[in-house]
């Protein structure tokens, strides 16, 4: 049983005329999006990194002065910065596995041909299409200490919870909100991946007498590796750069517990016009993300070799 396709190593070692033709083809195929990505993402990033080495009056029309690593040094001395890093990591360590496991569970459930599956998928996906501002306002009202969710809790005998107004529950509440938004979205990618697993594997597994759990771990997961890598990386990145619910609902509070790095970056650059501190924190956020994504690629492979 040959599983996934072989890599294209062989043709890569081919003679140079063919290699040159391939290179030319690759350039033509890549050019439009790579040029846009370089111009609209990477060059502004370099500008931002450069800004992190400068300092000046926030928002001033006068040019800033070069200060080297001074902005970073100030950050490293600030307790609220370290709290921000810590909360960012705590939030991500919980939210990413949670979303992926639930998205995977729902994807498996809704790709079994149950009646109405298309409708259920669409409904679960819907929250992703609600504009962030709208969904944050909605959840802000739902989670109010005297809002509808607490209404339900007290109706079944559970005391009302403070949710977003408590330093101990705010991270959990934001995880709830972003999971409502994200799970259905990531589920769609996993469903597409599940549909791509040829039925023969499941048939073979059934003939071997494997139960559903063993089939899941020995067939589904290995054959789902590529879409799973995508969802893992993309979900992690999207949660690291998330700030809209924080901006609308908590402004980083209570007591700095939801002051995630990306919100801080937004607050510094948009509210306070302080591009210098904002950029410095962006550099740190990027370093953290690069480290994590590298580990994820190591764990699941780049997808080329398997």
């Amino acid at each position: 049983m040959t599983s996934t396709p072989k890599a294209v190593q062989a043709s890569r070692r081919n003679g140079s005329p063919r290699g040159r033709r391939n290179l030319l083809a690759a350039i033509v195929f890549l050019a439009p999006s790579v040029i846009l990505i370089v111009l609209l993402r990477l060059i502004p990033t370099i500008t931002a990194i450069n800004q992190s080495l400068h300092q000046g009056i926030p928002g001033s029309l006068n040019p800033p002065s070069f200060v080297g690593g001074q902005v970073f040094a100030q950050l490293f001395q600030s307790a609220s910065f370290w709290q921000s890093v810590e909360q960012t990591l705590i939030f991500n360590v919980i939210v990413n596995p949670l979303q992926i496991i639930l998205a995977l569970a729902l994807a498996v459930l809704l790709s079994r041909g149950l009646p109405g599956s298309r409708l259920w998928r669409t409904i679960i996906f819907m929250p992703a299409a609600v504009p962030m501002a709208g969904s944050a306002i909605l959840w802000g009202i739902a989670l109010e200490p005297s809002g509808p969710i607490n209404g339900v809790l007290t109706a079944v005998g559970i005391p009302a919870q403070p949710f977003l107004t408590s330093p101990h529950q705010v991270v959990g509440s934001i995880i709830l909100i972003v999971s409502w938004i994200g799970i259905g979205y990531w589920m769609m990618f996993l469903i597409a991946g599940l549909n791509d697993i040829p039925d023969v594997y499941y048939e073979a597994s059934r003939i071997d007498g494997a139960g559903p759990l063993r089939t899941f771990f020995s067939i589904t997961i290995p054959l789902l590796r590529r879409p799973l890598l995508f969802v893992l990386v993309a979900d992690t990145v999207s949660n690291f750069v998330l700030f809209a619910p924080v901006q609308i609902l908590t402004n980083g509070g209570p007591q700095g517990q939801s002051n995630f790095l990306m919100y801080n970056i937004y607050n510094q650059s948009f509210n306070l016009s302080n591009a210098y501190s904002g950029s410095a924190q962006l550099v740190i956020l990027l370093i953290i993300m690069i480290a994590i994504v590298t580990v994820q690629f190591r764990l699941l492979g780049t997808g080329e070799d398997s």
Binding site: P58, P162, T165, S166, P167, T250, N251, G252, G253, P254, Q255, N267, N271, L272, S273
Partner: peptide, 19 residues
């Protein structure tokens, strides 16, 4: 003022929430 308003609003929010 801009920084003041930013910081003081967060302080108000914390006070409201019981800090």
């Amino acid at each position: 003022y801009i920084e003041f308003e930013n910081i003081i609003t967060n302080a108000y929010d914390d006070i409201i929430d019981g800090a």
